[in-house]
Simulated assay, not measured.
Amino acid sequence: MSVNDEDIVAEVVERELQLMSPAVRSSRERVARLLDPEFVEVGASGRRWDHRSMLAALPVMQGAADDGPQYVPTGMTGTVLAPGVVHLTFETVLDGRRARRSSIWRKSDEESGWRMYYHQATPVPDA
C-alpha cells in the first residue's frame, strides 16, 4: 500500500469510527453527511436498510446513547480497491454481541468527501 493509500484508508477509518460514536449516531444530520445517497446495509439481523430507513432508525438504535452500550471495534483494516473506493473490514462488540463487518466507502466529489456506500454485518456465534 502506498503512502497516499495509507492516508486515504486512515481518513475512511476515521469516518467509520465516527459512525460508531453516539454523538454522530444520534444526529440524523451528521449521519447523512457520512452515508452515500445510494447507501445499502445488510445488518446483523439480516434486515436490509437503505439511506432513508437508516437515517430514520439510527438515532434510536443501540449505540446511539452516551449512557448505553457502545460499539467496540477491533482489527480494522482497509484497502483501496480503485480510485475513490475503499473497503474496510473489522469486528465489533456491542452489548456482548460480536459481529464481523465490511464497509465500502466511495468518494464521488471533494465537497461531500468519503461516504459509506455499503455495509454488511455478520453475527459471530458464541464459541
Rank of each mutant, 00 (worst) to 15 (best):
G68K: 12
E6A: 02
P37D: 08
V12G: 01
D7W: 04
S21M: 08
R30M: 03
R15M: 14
S102K: 09
G113A: 00
W49Q: 13
E16P: 02
V31N: 13
S53C: 11
L94P: 04
A65R: 11
R25F: 08
H51V: 10
T79M: 03
G96C: 05
R15N: 15
D126N: 11
V60E: 08
R15V: 07
V124I: 06
R101C: 15
D66Q: 10
V40M: 12
S2R: 00
S21T: 12
R25A: 11
I8E: 00
A32I: 02
V80K: 02
E91F: 03
E14T: 15
V60Y: 04
A121C: 13
P123S: 10
S103M: 03
P73L: 12
M1C: 14
A99C: 07
M54E: 11
L17P: 05
T74W: 08
H87F: 01
P73N: 13
L35G: 06
H119A: 15
H119L: 14
H51S: 05
P73I: 08
E91A: 10
S103E: 06
P37S: 11
R106E: 08
W105R: 00
E111Q: 10
P73D: 07
T79E: 04
G113W: 03
L55C: 11
R106F: 10
L81G: 00
P73A: 13
R30W: 10
I104K: 05
Q62V: 06
L34E: 07
V86I: 01
E111M: 05
M1D: 06
A64Y: 12
R47Q: 06
I8Y: 01
E29L: 01
D36V: 04
Q62K: 13
A127D: 04
P37E: 06
R52T: 09
E110M: 12
S112G: 00
E38G: 07
G68H: 10
V124D: 01
S26P: 07
W49T: 04
E38K: 15
F90S: 02
M61T: 07
M54F: 14
L58A: 13
D126V: 12
M54R: 13
V124F: 05
G46V: 02
A23P: 06
L94Q: 04
D66N: 10
